[in-house]
Simulated scan of single mutants.
Amino acid sequence: MNPIQNDSLKSTISAKANEISTDGSFNRQTNRFTTPFGNNPGELPVEANRYRLLWTPACPWAHRTVIVRSLLGLDQVISLGTASPLRPKIAQVDWEFSLDENGVDPVLGIQYMSEIYKKTDPEYSGRPTVPVIVDVTNHRVVNNDYFKLTNYLETVWKPFHKEHAPNLYPESLRADIDALNEVIFHDINNGVYKCGFALSQEAYEQAYDQLFARLDELEQRLSNQRFLFGDYITDSDIRFYATLVRFDVAYYSAFNTNRNLIKEFPNLWGYVRDLYQTTGFGDTTDFDSIKKHYHMSITIFVDKENVKILPKGPDLSGWTTPHGRERLSNQKEKFLIDTKE
């Protein structure tokens, strides 16, 4: 290994180690680029065709952003760049545009995600994460705040929503949605990672118990209502879906979240199939990419064993079977259409 590769390797291990606490628990790195979109001074201007969303279908944080982009019709004004679900075999943890012709993103001309981060901030030392929004006028990262990004798309990007776009973040429910999103993030979305990346038995078991306590709670909540806030899909459902759809094919075995499969929760299983069979959800879900990433390519330390086996299962045919969730709703439509907000 030459000195440059060795320095890069040391930097990567150091960055990853910063996400593990002394008790062995996983603490996800904070987002570096968090300037909000809006119309106020200092905010990112909301303009059609100015930005490019970079993602990989494997990543739940990126997936939920792509779902919202699709549901709201913002795919007409924000372009999409797709990285491979397989990590490149290089010193640093990265994403690669190997699916594109010549192995580079056709708009930004980059091979690795880290290139756009380093171009924006030469001192950037964290993992290059997705989703990330890049300003195509200057090829600079402007936002990688996965926690708030869907909310920006749902609110200040409204002038570019398609006709009759669903209201995924109604003002009357925003406080409740925000509160539930916090729970979903810490105990479920990030909870599976806390299980999978834990480096102590105590940290793993604590995260495991919290994860399944929340799944049990939401299983009960969905026993008498179709979606998390009743008859209509909201931002919270999209965030919850991104973990549920990956659970049985990835987290259950790869992250040792193995008390129950989602298929074994009657209400959660019907609920996630209901969403999967909705335009914007299933058509943006790539099980092949998810399985390849979590079973063959996911890394927390770069010195882990390189030999990975891709599981043949599970059977995916059940995703298109009837879910019967209509009986819990008096509404034909799954989305609240409200053009006043």
Rank of each mutant, 00 (worst) to 15 (best):
H139D: 11
V130W: 05
T155I: 04
P57N: 13
F97T: 02
E123I: 02
T82A: 08
E154F: 00
D105C: 02
L71K: 03
Y117Q: 05
L108R: 04
A175P: 01
N167T: 15
W61I: 11
D145L: 09
T56V: 04
V104Q: 09
E154A: 15
N144I: 03
V136K: 14
V136F: 03
P60V: 04
D100E: 15
V77I: 08
V132G: 07
V93N: 12
P128Q: 02
N167C: 14
S84K: 00
D135F: 00
D176S: 15
P106A: 00
S114Q: 14
S79I: 01
W157D: 05
W157K: 01
L168E: 06
T137V: 03
L149N: 12
L99H: 09
S98P: 05
P122S: 12
R174P: 08
P57I: 03
E96H: 15
I177R: 07
I90L: 01
P128W: 09
P170S: 06
V141P: 06
N167P: 01
W95Y: 15
L168A: 07
N151L: 12
R87N: 12
K118F: 11
I110K: 11
A175V: 11
H164W: 07
I78K: 04
L74M: 09
G103I: 11
G126W: 06
I110W: 06
L168M: 08
F97M: 00
H63W: 05
V130A: 03
V107E: 14
I90M: 09
N167S: 14
G109A: 08
S84H: 06
G109S: 04
L168S: 03
G126T: 05
E171T: 14
K162V: 11
L71D: 00
I78R: 05
N102M: 10
V66P: 00
L53S: 02
R87G: 07
P159L: 03
V104H: 07
Y112C: 07
K162G: 09
A91P: 12
P88W: 08
P57M: 12
